[in-house]
Amino acid sequence: MARHHRGWHAWRRSLLLTMLLTGLTGCSLWGGGASRPQPAELGPNVPVLGVRQAWSAHLGSATGAPLVPHVQETTVTLAGADGTLVAIDARTGAEVWRTHIDGALAAGIGSDGRWTAVVSRNNDVVVLDEGREQWRQRVAAQTYTPPLVAGGRVFVLAADRTVMAFDAQTGQRLWSQARPGEPLVLRQPGVLIAVKDTLVAGLSGRLVGLSPDTGAVRWEAPLASPRGTNDVERLVELVAPISRVGESVCARAFQAAVGCVDTDRAAVLWTQKSNGSEGLDGDSAALYGVESDGTVTSWRRADGSRAWSSLRLQYRKLTAPLLLGRSVVIGDDTGLVHLLSREDGTPLNRLSTDGSGIAATPVAVADTLIVVTRKGSVYGFRPD
Rank of each mutant, 00 (worst) to 15 (best):
S243R: 02
A2C: 03
L351E: 01
F254L: 06
G60V: 07
T373N: 11
L29G: 10
R173I: 00
G7K: 09
V232C: 13
H338V: 03
A320Y: 11
D333V: 08
L157D: 00
T63M: 04
V245T: 14
V139P: 01
A320F: 09
Q272V: 12
R6D: 14
V126E: 02
D213N: 05
G131I: 11
T18Y: 14
Q134R: 15
R301M: 05
A54F: 06
A364Q: 14
A216C: 09
T346D: 09
Q177K: 13
A266F: 05
S120A: 15
G279V: 03
D197K: 12
I88T: 10
R252T: 02
P180M: 12
S352Y: 06
D332A: 03
D354I: 11
V268N: 04
V258Y: 01
G325F: 11
L105T: 11
R252F: 02
R312D: 10
A150M: 06
S111E: 07
G228E: 10
A178E: 13
A302S: 15
K375L: 13
G202P: 01
L78K: 04
P147C: 01
P147Q: 03
W30K: 09
R12Q: 14
R342H: 04
T63Q: 05
R173W: 01
A94P: 07
V268K: 02
W97D: 11
A267D: 06
L287N: 02
T353N: 13
L192G: 01
V249A: 09
R382W: 05
E220V: 15
R300V: 03
R91N: 13
V51T: 11
T145S: 05
G357Y: 04
L184A: 12
S277C: 11
V48N: 12
N123R: 15
L339G: 13
W97N: 08
H338L: 04
I358R: 06
A366H: 15
H4C: 00
A54I: 05
A54Q: 09
V371C: 05
I330V: 13
P37T: 10
T99W: 10
V268H: 02
L17D: 06
G215R: 05
T319V: 08
D82A: 14
A256M: 05
G355H: 10
W135E: 09
L174T: 00
T368E: 07
L318E: 06
L157T: 00
R161Q: 12
T74F: 12
D384L: 15
D124M: 14
A2H: 15
